[in-house]
Design a protein around this nucleic acid. Structure first.
Lengths: 235, 235
DNA sequence: TCAATAGTGTCTTTTAGACATTATATG
DNA sequence: CATATAATGTCTAAAAGACACTATTGA
């Protein structure tokens, strides 16, 4: 298939895509994991991943992995490459180069793939109550979390976690869940508003919760991708 | 070779590594490019790239590409993954998934690979005086530049461009060359000093230039990787 | 001596964080 | 009415930027 297989030491690799899908559910940051097929991995959990097909773009493989393994259909989800993991011994079944993706969606329903896919609280990862990972996915997941936490600072990525239109309180809860901190609502508002093009006003107001409260203004995503000034994490 | 080739549509890909090596030469940001082998690409320039060998890590392939194609031996160069380019039609010779790397080194000699490798001024890229790119490398290079410019803000990456020990003026010229702006030396000093763990004093002083001037204090890289507070670009 | 570069000090503007105050809803 | 949440205002401290000033060299 490839014309330049002149050297015995240069051949081809299996190429796969693994997706770390993060979402906010009940104000907690959650990660989608699936039970892998191989019987020797019973009890472990993995990122949804698929082999790349011929003539299939990497982004397409990522969407297919989410749909086929997680039952998540999210054509409008934010999807960005994270990193490629190519250690020769990372998969015991043979050399697999895996392109890892970070995916973000607004809150969705439970995955429709039954018992073999579920969301896990990110706060539980690495604790006795959390999942045991398959393959080297315990290395990919921290990279995905750090990417999300970091990009919340200097990009408009946080809006990928909320459905439009959204309120400032919803956006603030994204930052609080991803960073794991509490933020002052007043100062948060001022910083978001001063970041030019981050959000733009939408029509109408959100209904207050059951306990009452002033109705919140609604907003939509603005045109900016990088934030000026940035929304820096507290120390 | 791979045990799970059950579906005809899932096969293996050629996997390659392409490296964007940036360095500072004569206070200008420069990029290493090589002339590709295929005769139909005469007159075009490419990032040094190599196919990944069996049992070779991706980082190893990156170093090998720099050494074999550019004549650059830089085992201590900063090397980080940039992004993986896997569009099915990106290489006319067949499907090649390419893992792109960003490499940074202190100023080095001219590449020893003769006429087939040279440094180009980044400022000349995309101008009539600049190179024409082969493959999709005109998409990779802007990503590499933006990564470098962005990471100078919130990481200690700038120190990868200078050899130890270095002066604050040398470090400042890194920022000026990569960002393409002039920076106030006094304010630059204050920001670098307040970024905890960015640099640490070294022994001795640097000799002034031919025109004289007060000898500059020498520094080494500190332990920090992320900068607090960050070195933000001027608007 | 002067020119050049390193390093310090000062002033103003901007931004961040703490927190009080006002506005508008539910019950 | 009390309570809850949104939105605004105020004060202080920290940081950014402009720029004057001092220190130490080469010529």
């Amino acid at each position: 298939m490839t014309p330049s297989a002149r050297r015995a030491s240069v051949s081809t690799c299996a190429v796969a895509v693994d997706v770390a899908l993060l979402t906010l559910r009940d104000d907690r940051l959650q990660l989608l994991l699936v039970e892998p097929d191989p019987p020797e991995l019973r009890g472990r959990w993995a990122l949804p991943g698929r082999r790349v097909r011929d003539d299939e773009g990497l982004d397409d493989t990522a969407h297919r992995a989410l749909a086929e393994l997680g039952g998540i259909r999210a054509p409008d989800a934010h999807l960005e490459q994270l990193r490629t993991y190519g250690d020769p011994s990372r998969d015991p079944r043979g050399r697999v180069v895996s392109v890892a993706y970070l995916a973000l969606t607004p809150t969705t329903d439970d995955p429709s793939a039954g018992r073999h896919a579920r969301f896990w609280d990110v706060a539980d990862l690495g604790t006795p109550g959390g999942p045991r990972f398959a393959y080297d996915h315990d290395r990919i997941v921290p990279d995905a979390l750090e990417r999300a936490r970091s990009k919340l600072e200097y990009t408009s990525l946080a809006t990928a976690f909320v459905a439009e239109p959204f309120t400032l309180a919803e956006l603030r809860r994204v930052y609080e869940a991803v960073w794991g901190v509490a933020l002052d609502p007043a100062n948060f508002r001022r910083k978001v508003m001063s970041a030019r093009g981050f959000i733009v006003p939408a029509d109408g107001y959100a209904k207050p919760g059951p306990g009452g409260g002033r109705p919140a203004r609604r907003y939509r995503r603005g045109a900016a991708t990088r934030l000026h000034p940035a929304m820096l994490r507290p120390d």
